[in-house]
Computed example of a mutant assay.
Amino acid sequence: MIHRIKYELLLSFFLLSTLNAQSIQNIEINGNITFNDSDIKSWIQLGVNSPVYPGILDSIKNRLADNLARRGYFNASFEGTAVLQTADSQKVNLVINVDEGSPTYFQNIFITSDDSTAIDQLQSRFDFLESQVFNEYQLEEIISEILSEYENKGHPFIKISIQSIQFYDDSISGNHLADVKMNIRRGEKRSIDKIEIRGNTSTKDYVIVRELRIIQGEEYSQENINELPKRLNRLRFFQPVNIPQYYINSRNEGILLIEVVEKQTNNFDGIIGYIPGGKSNQKGYVTGLVNVVLRNLFGTGRSAAIRWQKLDRFSQELELKYLEPWL
């Protein structure tokens, strides 16, 4: 009995090792009508020479079912899908049979909102979907557009939730239908009442605020906030700046939080030497090059540069630069 168990374990291990060493030689797709072969291959995330692994058929079927459902085909089946060994057992051929089934159509889209005056306008955004094949990506695109519009008009905390999707069959046509119910809560209109800055150890707060070009009390706009890192990065005082966060404090004020990490903005390089006198009555002299650059002078955003150069005993150069960026 013990020898039999060992034999079965060794056989299982051998088969598993053989399967792991194999790769795909060819992928054959049959039965698909609406979606082409390239769609199917992109969904299964496999190609020629991809390794074969345990459970590969289940992965293929699950990925196909998920992608078809997102595009309105909830009744697909994959009967006869198989992994076939080649003659030398080093490669396999994938045979994928796809029966897409009948699509599901949007029938009704019901909208509720805390803004009763906007319901008709919001509803009209989804009207074109009715009687179209259910498509998750189209639905998400419209939702994303609405979110962006409200976020750019003073509503940072807008929420859109799909409360239910009811699937049923039409008793007359037999078509698969779906009713979608969603709620849109725009939330209170907000403004940027204060700017909070963290992480700046050298750069003054007013330098950062001035570069943001935000007027205290202005209406919240996500589009404008997304542009703020570009303005701060142009200063070259900080590591790449992330998109600022927005929150409401205990006083019900809208706070824009700017977090920065300062980087080295000053440079010093140079070389100094001494040339001794060539004759008994001739004194030696100092020679060299010194270059000092201060890109954020005292944290004010101003910059200054000093360059000194002396190549011989008879001449030297001194160059001074100063930049006032706010004139």
Rank of each mutant, 00 (worst) to 15 (best):
V92Q: 01
N75F: 05
T203W: 02
Q22I: 08
E253I: 03
D115I: 15
R190H: 10
N226H: 10
V95Y: 12
L212E: 05
H155G: 01
Q107Y: 11
I255M: 13
R125D: 00
D170K: 04
P325C: 11
K230Y: 08
G284I: 10
F78G: 09
D114Y: 07
I225H: 04
E100V: 13
L16S: 09
R63C: 01
F238C: 11
P276W: 02
V293F: 04
Q166R: 09
T203V: 09
W308P: 00
V207K: 08
K153S: 14
E149Q: 14
N224D: 11
R302V: 01
Q138I: 05
G31P: 01
Y53W: 06
K41R: 15
K194F: 09
Q107P: 06
Q123I: 00
R71D: 02
W43H: 15
R185C: 06
R302C: 00
Y73R: 07
K6H: 00
I258G: 07
G47T: 10
K230E: 10
I40C: 11
Q85W: 05
A82M: 09
H155D: 06
I165A: 06
G154D: 01
D120T: 03
F167G: 00
I258D: 07
N267M: 15
T18I: 12
S315N: 14
N266D: 12
M182E: 07
Q25M: 06
N224Y: 04
I272L: 09
I119H: 02
E28C: 05
N135T: 01
V180H: 00
A65K: 08
K279D: 15
L228V: 12
G299Q: 00
P325N: 05
P51E: 05
L294I: 10
L57A: 00
T18R: 14
T287N: 12
K279Y: 03
D205E: 14
K194G: 13
Q45E: 15
Q316S: 14
L122D: 03
Q309W: 02
G301F: 02
E218A: 10
R185W: 02
F298I: 03
W43L: 14
T300A: 09
E79F: 07
L139T: 06
A21I: 08
K91T: 11
E259D: 15
H3Y: 07
F128L: 02
Y137K: 08
K153T: 11
I27M: 03
I195E: 13
L139N: 04
E219P: 02
L212T: 02
D169F: 06
F128N: 00
L311A: 10
M1L: 06
D179H: 00
Q123F: 00
Y150Q: 03
I109E: 01
I146F: 03
G72Q: 02
E317I: 15
F35S: 09
G31A: 07
G270Y: 04
V83M: 01
H3Q: 05
Q239L: 13
G199Y: 08
S221W: 01
E130K: 04
S116I: 08
N30G: 08
I275E: 02
N152P: 00
L15R: 12
N249E: 03
